[in-house]
């Protein structure tokens, strides 16, 4: 049986959906027996879920305008060269 430290070193693999079934079973054996690691797995998954659930907010209008102006200048300059 793995120690908690050994299990936590493998936590990313455990959370990776492409993990091979045998490694998964090996790691799962620890989670089933260890309430602390069970909670760590659960709260790490929830941590990733809240981060991934946040869509980027639209950039401020004035910044967008500056970006477009800079791009337009660059495009015009390139056209001038061509």
């Amino acid at each position: 049986m793995l120690t908690c430290k050994q299990f936590l070193e493998e936590l990313n693999d455990y959370l990776d959906p492409s993990i091979d079934p045998e490694t998964k079973r090996h790691l799962e054996a620890h989670v089933c027996e260890c309430p602390n690691c069970f909670v760590i797995v659960d709260t790490t998954q929830k941590t990733l879920k809240v981060f991934r659930g946040m869509d980027p907010q639209p950039i401020p209008e004035d910044l967008k305008n500056r970006l477009w102006s800079a791009l337009e200048r660059k495009m015009a300059a390139k056209k001038g060269v061509a």
Partner: peptide, 15 residues
């Protein structure tokens, strides 16, 4: 891999 693990665990801790 190592940094990702530690970053995830640190964020888990804070949240």
């Amino acid at each position: 891999k190592s940094r990702l693990l530690r970053a995830r665990l640190a964020l888990r801790e804070k949240l």
